[in-house]
Every structure is written in C-alpha cells, then in structure tokens.
Design a protein around this nucleic acid. Structure first.
Lengths: 225, 225
DNA sequence: TAGATTGTTAATCGATTAACAATC
DNA sequence: TAGATTGTTAATCGATTAACAATC
C-alpha cells in the first residue's frame, strides 16, 4: 500500500523549469553531483526552497553528498511531462507569431512547432521556418492530424477569444496566450497568459518607486485627504 | 501630518496592469462607472481581491455606486508610473528582437522603442521598424542621448549576462530579460524574466496531470519505496 | 569517525477570501 | 428611505524560511 503522493504546489511547479535548465547545463559540463546550495545559487533562489521543492518530487538526494545531476534531471523532466514531445500550433502569423515560429528554443525543449495557422488568405500558402501556413478553417484537421496538444495565440487582441474557442473545439489541451487580453476557457484547459507590455508596466512601477516618489505622486487627492 | 502609505504588495502590483487594461476598454466604450464586481469579472479575478487591491492605492470608490472609470484609470496609471513615457532599448536583433521592435503594444502603452542594438557589424547600419540598429559599443551614448530607462535583452542566452552588465553600466534602471538564463544584476535594478519555453513547460506539467498519471510516472523508484 | 548535506518540522510571513459595518 | 456597493476586518490558506535531526 503506497501513500497518496502530496500534490506539487503551484509555486514549486513554476520553479521546476528553472532547476531543469541548471541541471541541463551542469550535465553538459560533466558535473555528476550537485548540492541544494549550488543549485539554488545558479537558479537564483535559496537552498531551503530548493530542498523543499525537490522533496515534493521524492527523496532523490543523498545526505552528505547532494543530488545526482543526471538522475535528478530525469526526475524533474518526468514530473514536468517532458519525456514526450508536445507538438504546438501557433495561430497568428504577424510579427510575434513569425518570431515564435522561428524560435528554436521551443523544439529544443520538447515543443516542436508542428503547424502554423492564419486567417488571412494572403498569408496562407506561404511558410515560416519551413512550416507551411494553414488556413484557420482547417484548424480542426491540422490539430488532429499532427496530434497537437498546445495552442499558442499570437493574433491581434480582438481575435484572441475566438481563436481560443476554436482551439478548444479543435481539441488542444492547453493554451498559451500572448495577446494582451484575458480569454475564457473551460476549467479543465490549462491556460497561461504572457503579456509583454504587462511586464514593462510592472518594471515601470518599481522604477518609479526607486527613483523616489515625485511631489504630485504622493498621498490621496486633496478632496479626500 | 500624513499617515505613512502602506506599501503596495507585489501580488497587487502584478494585477494592476490587468485592471488598467479593463479600465482603458471601459473608458473607450464610454462607461462612466464600474463596480468591483464588473472589474473583477473582466479582469479574471474575484471582487474581494479587486477591492483589496484598489484599497492600497487609496479610497477611490463610492459606496453604493462603484468607481469612476476615468478617475480610477488615472490613479492606476499614476501608481504604475505611466504618466511619463519610459523609452526602452532592445539589445539583440535576432528573430525575437525584431519581433519586439515591430510590436506596437510597447509604444501604445508608454514604452517607446527608442533604440535597437546589436553586436553584429552586418546588422549595424540596418534598421527595423524605422529605427536604426546601433553597435553594442555605443550602448552608453545611446542610453544617455535617448534618456533610456529600460533595457530589453533579446540576445542568445550566452550573451545575456554580458549584456545585462553593460546595460547596468550604461545606466538603465531596469531590465526585462527574454533569454532563458538567469542574469545577476545589482539589488537596486528591478529585473523581470520572461521565458517563453518555461511557460510551455508549466503547461506541460498541468497537461500531463490532467491526462492522468501514466504507470511509469507514479510513486518513488522501487529502491526507495 | 567527522564533516557534509539532505529531508522535514515548525515558525513566520504574505496573499486570499468571506463577511459585514459603513455609507453613498 | 431602501438598495447597492465600498473599504476593512478577521479567518484561512499557501508559501517561505530557519533550524536541526537523520544519515551518508
């Protein structure tokens, strides 16, 4: 009789790719063993957090020694579901979509770009990075034929919800949205939102904080003071 | 004598751009007033969180009525430091760098792309989106001349740390790193990391979870069980 | 064995949420 | 006034961290 595995906390999941990247590098450098201390340093977190995070995966370290790089890399990859490839489709062949299509980091990390889709008849028939651009109308058959599991939305903002709906209907199981718009998807479809301008706005906040508050910036307006 | 303003929690700061986007849209639609309920719905959070978040900025709502869209938009923008433009420099004119240079969303939201930089002599002299590409050697003078405050790193991963160091030396006050590498910067330089493949790996985790754990995936290895 | 380092516990901290008095 | 909705309190939850016994 086995114990029910503790669920892995969300915060831990978001850090696993970082640990994995460090492990890949250490392995390439031929390092056999790594301590939580070193892993933490290179991943930009603290050692206690590394040990806690890794403990959710299992007891894969050796006291007094550390973690076997190869073995831990395998375990982290396994937990992240990276032992299989997950083909992706990119919808929207504007500047961003084309850049993503050309980005080699996806395929390198197990996410081959299997199809490109656009609604514009002018673009359909062309190709980016050697991958043909398919009309949006054929999304269903493309997803099925290529066994695509992840849809990436890189369209203009006002098309995002429509595309998300069609991706879900076509059967993708998760969605990455690069549009600066919230899209609604069924509860069981994991969704991540990456908004480039949002990141800049967050920086802007801390920047302003740091440069010290300006006069006009302080306190509530007079009528509410 | 005024009360010391409560610092705004990090989690709140990261949501403010989302609220702002909704407010911009409501304002464009001519809506004058918004409840925490509606704002929450459109921003994809719950109403209690909206009220709590906004309460850190001040008491800008009216009980029984809601928030004045224009006024709240101004306040959120002010807190985020978006009443001024923050010119950015993009370093690295590969696929991603060029896509970012062409992205209109930056300028629209107060982050004009003021300069493009690359180390490759072949690229220097060319231009993207009408902006000339400057050699990396001239980074300092470009940052000074254009009063650039934010540096965006879009180089290959192995150049990221070097570029970060030079951006800091050149005097930018915050950095957005698109490279799948951790970079180290002084404590007082706000840094955000956006790794496209990390997002996919997180999706991969939840995807796999959802499709149900495979046999080989369950439990610790036999020798540790 | 002695030194090193894990895995886990317990304390602390910060974020979320529900509930409701205040008040328009 | 009666209904609506904020702003805040207090309870809950989850994440972080320090510390240390277990153990290689």
């Amino acid at each position: 009789m086995t114990t029910a595995p503790r669920p892995i906390p969300e915060a831990t999941v978001t850090r696993l790719p970082g640990y994995r990247a460090v492990l890949v590098e250490l392995d390439a450098d031929g390092q056999q063993t790594v301590s939580s201390e070193q892993l933490a340093e290179q991943a930009g977190v603290n050692a206690a957090k590394v040990r806690k995070d890794l403990s959710y995966l299992g007891s894969y370290g050796t006291r007094g020694v550390g973690y076997d790089v190869r073995f831990l890399l395998f375990q982290v990859s396994r937990v992240l579901g990276l032992t299989t490839d997950w083909p992706v489709v990119i919808v929207g062949m504007g500047n961003l979509g084309r850049a993503l299509a050309n980005y080699r980091g996806f395929a390198e990390r197990g996410f081959p770009v299997a199809a490109l889709v656009d609604i514009d008849p002018e673009k359909v028939g062309g190709s980016v990075a050697g991958i043909p651009i398919t009309p949006l109308a054929q999304l269903d058959s493309v997803v099925a034929a290529q066994a695509i599991s992840i849809g990436i939305i890189a369209t203009p903002a006002d098309a995002a919800q429509m595309v998300a709906d069609r991706l879900v209907a076509a059967g993708v199981s998760s969605i990455l949205n690069f549009t600066p718009t919230m899209v609604n998807v069924p509860e069981d479809v994991p969704l991540r939102q990456v908004d480039l301008a949002t990141e800049l706005q967050i920086l802007s906040f801390y920047q302003q904080q740091h440069s010290g508050p300006q006069k006009a910036v302080m306190g509530p307006p007079a009528d509410l003071a």
